[in-house]
Amino acid sequence: MEPVRVLIVDDEHELVSALEERLALRGFVTRGVTDGAAALECLRTTTFDVVLADVKMPGIGGLDLARTINAERPDVPVVLLTGASSPQDAASGSTLGAFDYLVKPVKIDDLARVLCAAARREQP
C-alpha cells in the first residue's frame, strides 16, 4: 500500500516540524510549509494525497487556501485544523470544499485516521 503524502501548512514552525516527524513515524510521507503561498507553490510542483492546513494564518488563511485548492486541484482533499470548534467553522470548511476539520490540540491517531480517510476519499 502506497504511503499517504501529506502537505502540512501552519504558521507555527515548531508544530509543523513535530507533526511532520510524528506522521512520518506512522508511515506518512510529509512535507511542511509555514504559509499558504508556499503550500500552493508546493502543490504545483509536487503531488500530495491530502493537505492539512491551519485555518488562521497570516496572508492566505486556511479557508482561502482550501477554496483555491478546491478550484485548482479538486483531486486533493484539504483537512483543516482550527482553534475553535464552532459549527460555523465546520460549515464554512465543508462549504469551501474542505474534507474535514479537526480542533486543536489534536490527537495524533485521530489526525492520522482522518488523513488516511481523506486520502482514500472516505467520508468521515
Binding site: E12, E14, L15, A18, L19, E21, R22, L25, K56, L81, G83, A84, K104, P105, V106, I108
Partner: peptide, 25 residues
C-alpha cells in the same frame, strides 16, 4: 477570551505534539 483561547491553542498544540513526539520516540 475567545481570541486568547484561539491564540493559546497554538502553543498548546506544540506542547502536545512535541511531547507526543518524545513519547513516540
Amino acid at each position: 477570551g475567545a481570541g486568547v483561547a484561539h491564540e493559546i491553542n497554538n502553543p498548546l498544540s506544540i506542547i502536545t505534539q512535541k511531547a507526543g513526539l518524545l513519547n513516540d520516540l
